[in-house]
Design a protein around this nucleic acid. Structure first.
Length: 664
RNA sequence: GCCGCUUUAGCUCAGUCGGUAGAGCACAUCAUUCGUAAUGAUGGGGUCACAGGUUCGAAUCCUGUAAGCGGCACCA
């Protein structure tokens, strides 16, 4: 073996380096500028420390802050370590556990001695972190024997680290990273050469949170500190600015400003829809109903309350009872004295889902193979008593309405039916302004019902159907997720991307053979025998509450005209235009436009501001001139300047925009 | 459910050391008729989330409860 290694660089050149040399040496050989800028190295494609000696000839690419993805990952990982070191300096008995990088920064989970961290401590911890960065402590990798490491952790009283170290796979090389000579953490690396490579102005600790050890509710709860971390202050400020912008489109804030809905503690987790909010709902529901009618669905309506026995039979009582609202089936005690209910009555429950009821409809009468596919739709109002910490605005609620449907198919119809569903969903998402969405296939979980043959077949059918639509592609983020399926069926998930890049899973489709079996649904086949149908559970919006919340945030309140609760306001400049304004309103109403008049004795500036804040898409401004000429000055949300036009022209334009996309 | 934080007028928020509550917007009345993001004046409006406690005295300190917010866990 030669005592020189050949190191090839990205520009095609190469250098001979002596054994024991490192990427840092190469950087230094190239020039002092690069030596200073280098953060880490890619050696044969693998990201490693600058100080990691070469083990043979290698392809080398030095990583600098220009390699943003790598640089951010390194910086965030290092911020996490610095956070942990800072916390242990300030609270020496706090145990460290685990602290990775995240999409916008980092966190670290601690086991503090005297209770969880609070927001008030973050500033002090940031201060200590900046001190560690200023100390420019070298970060040094050390390979360590497992037993020695476990002993070290135990000696230090770090029981979580010791547990973790003991469970890392046999044969894996364990490494620790030293920060200077006085602090270390177990870590795979790589890291920056020293803490001083971090920009002390490029991070901010953002919040504290509880988090379970290893993500399991049965384990101890740790105290997590979150931070956002970047390469420089400019990036940090840009990020904080993005968060502010996102907060401006928060559906809870806009819901109040636009007077769409409210929530209150007396019915927490259920939405009070105000007239304007419910207009959005009605427009969306009417649209969905037309789309479903066109697609061959039969709409039904099923009971809110069913006997608990029905839920026992479907399996939900056993598995999900803690999240169901149960109701005693008895007349309450009407005396003032004594308990209101006896506690001895049979139980009923508010429906947490619609599927059993749909099967009960399916089972009425005898179904022939000729009746299939049978598509049963319901805008089904369901109740689930969610864990209180899970509730969030109108996005996660206890009473919600799904755009639910169950499609009963013969096995030979499955692929074709799934394909049609994908096409329908695609059409609807595009109509609603979500052209960008991803499709994922969630595969069998470890704990499941049904045979492996069933799962093989169901998974393959879903996969084949998506492939047949031509959407099993990178553009659609096509991906298979092992272990993520429901316990009774694999699942197609449809994740849409909103205007600021967040993703939301809304659509879903599951192939279920379990429930038809449990509730004994069957059809008569061509052979005259009874057969089990396959049942597809599917939703496109998910729930109206959540989807409307998503749309409010996606559009920042500026809904497309056909969905806007108030599509136009007619605002006068002087009271001499009032009669004309009333006439304009009448004509717009006759054209089916949701219009309001604003004849108040206020300046036009005031009116413009107010209706702009309420996100009204069109403002028809009427003064003396318009009244005399029979025109309107149309000030539209999406246009920079107003346009004066004859009333008839404005009506035609508004009417076109107010027409739902399926009726155009 | 768990951890942390919050709760004061319809809304957004001040309220210092414990001494019985304040602003802007909104609302009402009056004046103003005005050309594209806030006209002026006057006025009404609060069991300081709820229940206890400490204190001569509590929006303020303590305990409990509820809801909300940020996470964790959950999401059939």
């Amino acid at each position: 073996m030669s005592d020189q290694f050949k190191i090839s660089l990205p520009d095609g050149s190469s250098r001979e380096m002596p054994m024991g040399s490192t990427p840092a040496d190469v950087a230094a050989a190239i020039g002092p500028g690069l030596a200073k800028a280098a953060l880490a190295a890619r050696v044969n494609g693998e990201l490693v420390d600058l100080s990691r000696p070469f083990t043979g000839d290698a392809q080398l690419a030095l990583v600098t802050s220009r390699d943003e993805a790598d640089a951010l990952e390194l910086a965030r990982h290092d911020f996490a370590h610095v956070l942990a070191e800072a916390v242990q300096r300030m609270h020496p008995n706090t145990q460290i556990t685990f602290g990775p990088s995240t999409d916008d920064g980092f966190y670290y989970d601690f086991a503090p001695v005297g209770g969880a961290f609070t927001d008030g401590e973050l500033a002090n911890i940031e201060f200590e972190m900046r001190r560690i960065i200023a100390e420019d402590k070298p970060l040094r990798r050390e390979v360590i024997a497992r037993d020695e490491l476990i002993a070290k952790w135990q000696e230090a009283g770090e029981i979580y680290k010791a547990e973790w170290a003991a469970e890392l796979p046999e044969g894996e090389e364990l490494t620790v990273y030293w920060s200077g000579d006085d602090w270390f953490d177990m870590c795979r690396g790589p890291h920056l050469p020293s803490t001083g490579k971090l920009d002390p102005a490029a991070f901010k600790l953002t919040r504290v949170s509880g988090a379970y050890w290893r993500g399991d509710q049965k384990n101890d709860q740790l105290s997590r500190i979150y931070g956002t971390g970047w390469l420089n202050k400019k990036q940090l400020d840009a990020h904080l600015n993005r968060l502010e912008e996102a907060a401006k489109r928060d559906h809870r804030k806009l819901g109040q400003e636009m007077d769409l809905f409210h929530l209150q503690s007396e019915a927490h987790g259920s939405v009070f829809w105000h007239p304007k909010g419910y207009l959005i709902w009605r427009a969306l529901e009417a649209y969905m109903r037309r789309r479903l009618d066109q697609a061959g669905y039969d709409e039904v309506k099923t009971p809110q309350v069913m006997d608990a026995k029905q839920w026992e039979q479907s399996g939900h009582w056993g598995k999900y009872r803690e999240n169901m609202f149960v109701i005693p089936d008895e007349v309450p005690n009407t005396e003032d004295e004594g308990p209101v209910i006896s506690g001895e009555a049979d139980w009923m429950a508010l429906k947490p889902m619609n599927c059993p009821a749909h099967i009960l409809i399916f089972k009425q009468g005898i179904k022939s193979y000729r009746d299939l596919p049978l598509r049963m739709a319901e805008f089904g109002c369901c109740h689930r008593n969610e864990a209180h910490g899970a509730l969030h605005g109108i996005m996660r609620v206890r009473q919600f309405t799904q755009d639910d449907a169950h499609i009963f198919v013969r096995p030979d119809q499955l692929v074709e039916e799934v394909k049609s569903f994908c096409d329908l969903l695609d059409l609807i998402y595009k109509d609603l302004g979500f052209a960008d969405y991803a499709i994922k296939l969630a595969l069998r979980p470890d704990q499941r019902f049904g045979s492996d043959e069933m799962w093989d077949w169901s998974e393959a059918s879903l996969r084949d159907a998506v492939i047949a639509t031509g959407r099993a592609t990178e553009q659609f983020g096509w991906e298979e997720l092992p272990g993520e399926g429901a316990f009774y069926a694999p699942k197609l998930e449809f994740h849409l991307t909103d205007a600021i890049g967040r993703t939301w899973q809304c659509g879903t489709l599951q192939t279920d053979t379990v429930l038809p079996e449990r509730l004994d649904a069957s059809y008569i086949g061509e052979d005259g025998e009874k057969h089990r149908p396959v049942m597809l559970h599917r939703a496109i919006l998910g729930t109206f509450e959540r989807f409307i919340g998503i749309m409010i945030e996606h559009y920042a309140g500026k809904l497309p005209v056909w969905l806007a609760p108030v599509q136009a306001v007619v605002a006068t400049i002087v009271s001499d235009a009032d009669d004309y304004a009333r006439d304009v309103v009448r004509q717009l109403e006759a054209a089916g436009i949701r219009v309001e008049a604003d004849l108040r004795n206020e300046k036009i500036n005031y009116k413009v501001r107010e209706h702009s804040l309420k996100k009204v898409p069109h403002l028809l401004v009427l003064g003396k001139r318009e009244a005399e000429e029979g025109t309107v000055a149309l000030r539209s949300m999406d246009a920079e300047h107003q346009k004066v036009m004859p009333l008839a022209e404005a009506i035609a334009m508004l009417k076109a925009q107010a027409t739902p996309p399926d009726l155009r």
